[in-house]
Simulated assay, not measured.
Amino acid sequence: MSQHAEQAAAFVLHSRPYRETSLLVDLFTLEHGRISVVARGARRSGSARRFTLQPFQALHVSWAGRHELKNLSQAEVPQVMAPLVGKALLCGLYANELLQRLLQPADPHPRLYLYYTYLIQELQQSADLEGALRTFERQLLENLGYGIGFSHCHPGCYYQYDTQQGMIEVTADRGCYTGTDLLAIAEDRYETVDVRRAAKRLMREALAPLLGVKPLKSRELFIKTRRTA
Rank of each mutant, 00 (worst) to 15 (best):
Met1Asp: 00
Glu6Thr: 09
Glu6Cys: 10
Gln7Cys: 14
Phe11Arg: 06
Val12Ile: 15
Leu13Thr: 11
His14Gly: 12
His14Met: 02
Pro17Cys: 01
Tyr18Met: 08
Arg19Phe: 01
Glu20Met: 02
Glu20Asn: 09
Leu24Lys: 13
Arg44Asn: 11
Ser45Glu: 09
Ser45Lys: 13
Gly46Lys: 04
Ala48Trp: 04
Arg49Val: 00
Arg50Gln: 13
Arg50Ala: 15
Ala58Leu: 08
Ala58Met: 07
Trp63Leu: 15
Pro78Lys: 02
Met81Gly: 09
Leu84Thr: 03
Val85Leu: 13
Gly86Leu: 10
Gly86Met: 05
Ala88His: 05
Leu89Asn: 03
Gly92Ile: 11
Tyr94Met: 03
Asn96Gly: 07
Leu98Ser: 11
Leu102Ser: 13
Leu103Lys: 05
Pro105Gln: 02
Pro108Asp: 07
Pro108Leu: 02
His109Ala: 09
Pro110Lys: 09
Arg111Gly: 02
Tyr113Phe: 15
Tyr116Met: 05
Thr117Pro: 00
Gln121His: 09
Glu122His: 03
Leu123Thr: 06
Leu129Pro: 01
Leu129Ile: 15
Glu137Met: 04
Arg138Lys: 12
Gln139Asn: 06
Glu142Asp: 12
Asn143Arg: 13
Leu144Glu: 04
Tyr146Arg: 01
Gly149Ile: 00
Phe150Leu: 07
Cys153Lys: 05
Cys157Pro: 00
Tyr158Ser: 02
Thr163Tyr: 03
Gln165Ser: 06
Gln165Asn: 14
Glu169Leu: 11
Val170Met: 15
Ala172Gly: 05
Gly175Val: 06
Thr178Ser: 15
Asp181Ala: 15
Asp181Asn: 10
Asp181Trp: 02
Ala184Ile: 10
Asp188Met: 07
Arg189Trp: 00
Val193Trp: 01
Arg204Asn: 07
Leu207Glu: 04
Ala208Met: 08
Leu211Asp: 01
Val213Gly: 13
Pro215Leu: 09
Leu216Met: 13
Leu216Gly: 07
Leu216Ser: 10
Lys217Arg: 10
Ser218Glu: 01
Glu220Trp: 02
Phe222Ala: 14
Thr225Ile: 04
Arg227Met: 08
Arg227Val: 13
Arg227His: 14
Thr228Ile: 14
Thr228Ala: 06
